[in-house]
């Protein structure tokens, strides 16, 4: 069940004041038998405890998926899901994929052409500390 945002008066700016991780849940699936899950089984045993402890805001579920390749499914607060197949990967490669899912916004991948993206563009442009009169601290 996804989190539905309430009708809001002002637009939230994630990271301004508070930062809410967009990934809310990760499903980790493995197979006991298949060789493609060897790295995943190692990841669950050795790396996942630290990773899960470092991210208490993400819910982790670990469950077998017999006779299937291992996957990690990320669930996001916008209601979307992102699944990555990690067959035949080493535990550290799987950690990279888990970090990718953690950092993802859940949005569809878009082509980024500009260095700064804003939903409320400033007419004055991007503020720079190296221009203007400077500021006395």
């Amino acid at each position: 069940m996804t989190v539905k945002a309430l009708q809001q008066i002002s637009t939230g700016r994630n990271g301004v004041g508070a930062f809410i991780l967009q990934c809310k849940k990760m499903d980790i699936h493995y197979c006991d038998w298949a060789g493609s899950s060897r790295g995943m089984n190692g990841f669950i045993k050795s790396i996942l405890p630290q990773f899960a402890a470092a991210h208490p805001q993400i819910e982790f579920t670990v469950s077998p998926r017999p006779s299937k390749h291992p996957i990690i499914v990320g669930h996001y607060i916008n209601g979307r899901e992102k699944a990555i197949c990690v067959r035949n990967m080493e535990p550290l490669q799987i950690l990279k994929k888990a970090e990718l899912l953690r950092d993802a916004s859940g949005e569809k991948l878009k082509r980024v052409t500009k260095p700064v993206q804003s939903i409320n563009d400033s007419v004055r442009g991007v503020w720079s500390p190296y221009h203007g009169n400077g500021m006395q601290v």
């Binding site: 899960a52 982790f60 579920t61």
Partner: peptide, 15 residues
């Protein structure tokens, strides 16, 4: 594993 003791982790024995 320490996974069992973590509050944000659930481990299922079957699919």
């Amino acid at each position: 594993s320490e996974l069992v003791s973590l509050p944000n982790v659930r481990v299922f024995p079957r699919r």
